[in-house]
């Protein structure tokens, strides 16, 4: 599904990704962990198509197509989803209209007619249940005045609405209390399927107790320095990142 090869990316003068390799197959859940500044969020941004970053080496294939050739809209319509670490507030645009534009954008890409009003509302109701997003939050302006937990639940709601092939969760657990973390994780788990893959980016092992990954990778200084199963996360929790950093240098 996703093949990242020797990916290099910079912002301004700073080279952040320095040759990153990762392959994700359908149905797999991969976790990327790493210390602050290792390039985790850069990877998410580059994959989603944020233009602030310059890709200066390597390549990314998504469902057999060159991902880096597409703009952010095309990537989303092709089935890639990024749950933002800091979801953006858009005053004056209701959450529901925002989602309708998004859903219809995807349908246009698939050669389908715009979704009918009733069908859309039924879909909203069903998907909102997943993350306990009540009507009040659905009708308010996108993320405006939402609490941290509500914003993250809204991200997962949007993901459920768009039914991506690959969802990237960028530090979705940061700033969440335990209840919100549980709701968000249950939402994600309900969406796991043999066709859908996840790339879970996190600083803390805690999230991975709820969303159990098939693979864990450790990102240090723009490269994946170690990969393993879910037990690697526990090891990191126990020992911290320093031993891996030292290993990586050695």
């Amino acid at each position: 599904m996703l093949k990242i090869k020797e990916l290099q990316a910079s912002i301004g003068e700073a080279q952040i990704l320095k040759g990153l390799n990762l392959t994700i197959n359908p149905g797999e859940v991969h976790a990327i962990m790493g210390p602050n500044g290792s390039g985790k969020s850069t990877l998410a941004s580059v994959l989603a198509g944020r233009e602030d970053y310059e890709v200066n080496g390597g390549g990314v294939q998504f469902n057999g197509e060159d991902l880096l050739e597409m703009d952010a809209t095309e990537r989303a319509r092709s089935g890639l989803f990024l749950a933002f670490q800091y979801p953006v507030e858009i005053p004056g645009v209701s959450n529901i209209n925002f989602m309708r534009a998004a859903v219809n954008g995807k349908r246009e890409h698939q050669g389908l007619e715009p979704i009918k009003g009733k069908e859309f509302l039924d879909m909203v109701k069903e998907k909102a249940k997943l993350v306990e997003l009540d009507g009040r939050l659905r009708n308010r302006s996108v993320n405006e005045g939402f609490s941290g937990g509500e914003k993250k639940r809204n991200e997962i709601f949007q993901m459920a609405m768009l039914e991506p092939n690959l969802a990237i969760l960028d530090e979705t657990d940061s700033g969440l209390d335990i209840d919100a973390l549980r709701i968000v994780s249950e939402g994600v788990n309900a969406m796991r399927s043999p066709e859908r893959s996840f790339l879970v980016i996190t600083h803390y092992q805690r999230l991975l107790e709820y969303i159990v990954p098939d693979f864990v990778h450790v990102l240090v200084d723009g490269r994946i320095v170690r990969s393993g199963g879910k037990e690697l996360a526990l090891e990191l929790e126990e020992k911290g990142y320093d031993w891996i950093k030292e290993d990586a240098v050695a």
Binding site: D71, A72, F84, V88, G92, A101, A102, H109, V142
Partner: peptide, 30 residues
């Protein structure tokens, strides 16, 4: 234009022109 909001909308599959129109409406509808 709020570049962050534009990117956010695009990352949900909204085209860049539609995203700009959306932000314009949000601005003047008030």
């Amino acid at each position: 234009f709020d570049e962050e909001a534009l990117f956010y909308a695009q990352s949900r599959g909204v085209g860049v022109d539609a995203a700009k129109a959306m932000l314009v409406h949000a601005f003047i509808d008030e």
